[in-house]
Amino acid sequence: MALGLKEATRKLLDPGSYLGWALIAIFTLVGVYFWAGKISSNYPSLLMDIMMFVGIALSLAVIMSFAGYVSFGHAVFFGLGGFSVTIVFRSATKGGILAGVTSNSVVLLVLGLLLGIALSILLAATVGAAVLRLRGAFFAIATIGMDYVILYLETLVGEGGELEFNPGYTNFLEKTYAFFLIGFILTFLIVYLVRVSKFGYGLAAIREDEDAAEILGVDTTRYKIYAFIIAAALAALWGGLFSWRTSSVGPENFSLKYSVDMIVMNVIGGLGTLAGPIIGGIIYYIVKRLTLIYVPQLAYVVMGVIVILVVSFFPEGIVGIVNRKVKKLSEYLI
């Protein structure tokens, strides 16, 4: 199932990866200027937003877009990631179990991210694995249920679930940008390798016809669970980074609105592709940003109308349409 190292290196230079590398190059370049103190924090902040949006879109893509299982409760992993980072930081303050062990915020962040990823993998491998037996709408509803169970349990902690922490504010934005960049590169590499590996083709087979895939020898159960685990871990990574950036966690982090963001980005971009969530994520972010600037109170209405229009008239999404009209591009927009 896994790619060999040599093969993976070769795949990383395929045309399908150019889009991702181009983005990484831009983000790194802006980062270098930012770290050198040459530009203000406006552009890096904007790019961090985009990195997170594309990042969570890519995380959901592994299960929704590649395998065809629409998880409406994916925010649960995003929330768990944020919750873990918060808990680790809080336990390093006076009276916590990590008090006196270390107060290095970078170490704590990495610990928090790892804890979040571990918890998410645990949840995805147990409850998630059971829920993956369901198909279509039943799966979607069960994941919503999973999200709400954790959300309601989270509200029992702290004041209605609202927790804050002190991430240590020396060079905070510079550090945050570095972590977001590393997170983005990791996310892209993992999702890209899933897409081009045998595993990815197995997932595509599951999406098109699960029974047929099973008959043809795809270990559907195992593939689905692995895909769900990868998707969960990546969502937890971004949830953790997001909480670090906002220095807090709350029931809001588990809110379905993050699931919605992830789903809509994938739908707009085009299902079944790697370029879909990347392009969809960037466009969605721009649209969301513009609506928030010009018609802030109607942001939800705009989003709802876009979803209906896309699903009704362009169910194949931007990448699907572009690839159909311009055949040459389909090599790059895989």
């Binding site: 709408a137 109607l298 209405v301 989003m303 709802g304 109308v305 979803v307």
Partner: peptide
């Protein structure tokens, strides 16, 4: 499955539009 997913998403879009209008 595809139609089902699309209907899921479109009803969802209608829902958040109502939410947005009420807000």
């Amino acid at each position: 499955l595809k139609v089902e997913m699309n209907s899921l998403l479109s009803t969802f879009g209608f829902g958040i539009a109502i939410y947005g209008l009420l807000s």
